[in-house]
Structures are given as C-alpha cells and as structure tokens.
Design a protein around this nucleic acid. Structure first.
Lengths: 160, 160
DNA sequence: CAGTATCCCTGCCGATACTG
DNA sequence: CAGTATCGGCAGGGATACTG
C-alpha cells in the first residue's frame, strides 16, 4: 500500500517540493481520495465543515459541557453542534461523558488523538496567520485587475 | 490584535495543549472567524472545498497546464476546475501563465506562498495517514455501539 | 485547448418545535 | 440541560452546450 499515498503522507518526509519526478501522476491515490478510501479526505472533510475546528480549538483548553460550547460559539445551531460533536466522537477525537444527574450534564473532552489533531491544526492556523497579509494583498491585486478589465467593457452603460 | 487570536496562531508557539488558562473564551476571535475577518477561516474554506488540496498537491511537483490537471483528476468538472484555479490564483497561491499560441496554452504553477501551504498541508496529510488506523478503529467501535442500541429497539419488527 | 454560460439537483445547515 | 424531529432555503457542484 505504499504506491501512491496521497501527498506522500507515508513514511518519508516531503516538507519541500518535488523530491521525486512523479511517475505518471498518482491516479490511484486520487481515486482513493474521492472514494472516501483516503484517510486524508476524512480529515479534510472534518476540518472543512463549519464548526469542527472551532470545537476542537475550544476543547484544547480543557473539557466543556454542551451548553458551554453552545454559548462560546453562539452562532451555531443546537442541531449542528450536536452533529459536529457526534462526528468528532465517532472519529475518536473527543469523548462524551454523561453524568446521570437531573438536569443531565454532558462533558466533552479531547482524546489523545484529538489533541494530536489540535496541535496539527495549530500549525495550519499559524501558517495562515503568518501569511494573512500576503493573501490579502494578492486578493487586492487580483480584484483590482478584474475591475480594470471590466472597466473596458462596461463604459457603454454610461453613454446610454 | 494579540488578544484572542484564533488557535493562538499569533506570535507564540502552542504546538502542545493549553499553555494558557483562557480568560473567558475568545468570543471576539470566534466572531471574527465567522465574519470572514479571520485569516484562518480563509485557509479553512479553501482547503475545505473538494478540489483545492488536490490541485495544490499536483502542482507541488511542478507546473501543469489546464488539461493536464483535468486529466489527472479526471472526476472534476471543467467548471469546478476553473473555479478552483481562479480562487487559488486570487489568493496568490498559484500563478496563471497564458501563452498566446493557437491553440492556447495555460500553465499553472505554485507561487512561493503556495509552496508554503503545500508543505503545511503535507504535515496534515502525514498526521492523517499516521493515525488512519486509530480513526478507523474508533469508527468501528462507535458504529458497533450504535448497532447494539438499535438492536434493543428494533426486534419487535421480527415478532410481527 | 481553455475556457464561459445555463440548468438543475443534492445535501449542508439554520429555525423551530418537542422530549426525557 | 441536552438533546431529537421536521421543514425549508440556498450554496456547492455536476452535466451539458457553446465560444475564441
């Protein structure tokens, strides 16, 4: 299974660019990525949704109960918070502890696995934050060019 | 602006867990994250979509032209490939070079910024791949528990 | 070849109401 | 408090047809 592991996520380090000429393109790995066969896709799907990263981040500072999370995020609907928590629990990233009191109390906490992802996400966040100016500048430049090319087509509306 | 930077992505390293007790919960940072004010959300949105990571990965091995990418991914629609490439270009992650030949030829290539993200994504991919078994096991366990609890409700259908 | 334009459908997600 | 159930909007993304 060490043929076309997506992003060379396998055994060797590939932090920099092309260390291998790439045979023909890892078509197998790509197919796997789309089938849901690829473990990378799983994580991508999880962090791609609107709330998971937020929850993982909040739980990075220790366990919280349902309403604590709800109030902390505040813009999330009850439905989505529940779904998000269930998905994270299913993937073994958080634990769900029910205290059979009345009213009920449920604590959510990162597992060891969850803390690992939390750390990796922090890496990504750090990169994003460090390069926020570059991205913003790139967008400004791009949008300015767009506006210019539009300006050469639209002026007729002023001559009407 | 060093109050509640999301995921502590600011100036200090936080690779491991909670190094600060967290005052009250960084409500401001969370609001910013949802407003689109947060640079982390930008990256999350980008890598959260279906094709961006794939494209960045493929371009990690050098420039490619439109049809090369299309054929490499093969399941992507023309429409979505174009949109993905435009978004990446706008964010300054790739460059688009048009050769005014006939038929036209367009090359896409990672920028310096893009190569940085490529490296960070490789980190994430490596983590995902390294822990794929844990996630799979967690899911199996979870799903088995689910099936069990269902089994105590459903049997009536067998007694009908 | 490298796109743009149009149609359409699925599923994500929010709002609301109800329950143990 | 901590959920589940149901309805509905709308954006992401695919299929197809057309263009420079």
């Amino acid at each position: 299974m060490q043929d076309g592991t997506f992003l060379s996520a396998g055994d060797t380090a590939v932090t920099d660019r092309g260390d291998a000429p790439v045979p023909g393109t890892p078509a197998g790995a790509i197919a796997a990525l789309l089938d849901g066969t690829c473990p990378v896709r799983d994580v991508l799907d999880r962090i791609g949704d609107k709330w998971s990263v937020l929850v993982i981040t909040l739980l990075g500072d220790g366990p919280m109960r349902f309403m604590e999370l709800k109030r902390a995020i505040e813009l999330v609907s009850q439905r989505m918070l529940t779904r998000t928590l269930r998905a994270l629990e299913r993937d073994g990233l958080i634990t769900r502890t029910v205290f059979p009191t009345v009213p009920p109390r449920v604590d959510y906490e990162l597992t060891e696995l969850g803390r690992g992802l939390h750390a990796t996400l922090a890496e990504l966040a750090r990169w994003s934050y460090a390069h926020r100016a570059d991205v913003e500048a790139a967008r400004a430049t791009y949008d300015a060019r767009e506006a210019d090319s539009q300006a050469q087509v639209e002026p007729e509306s002023l001559r009407a």
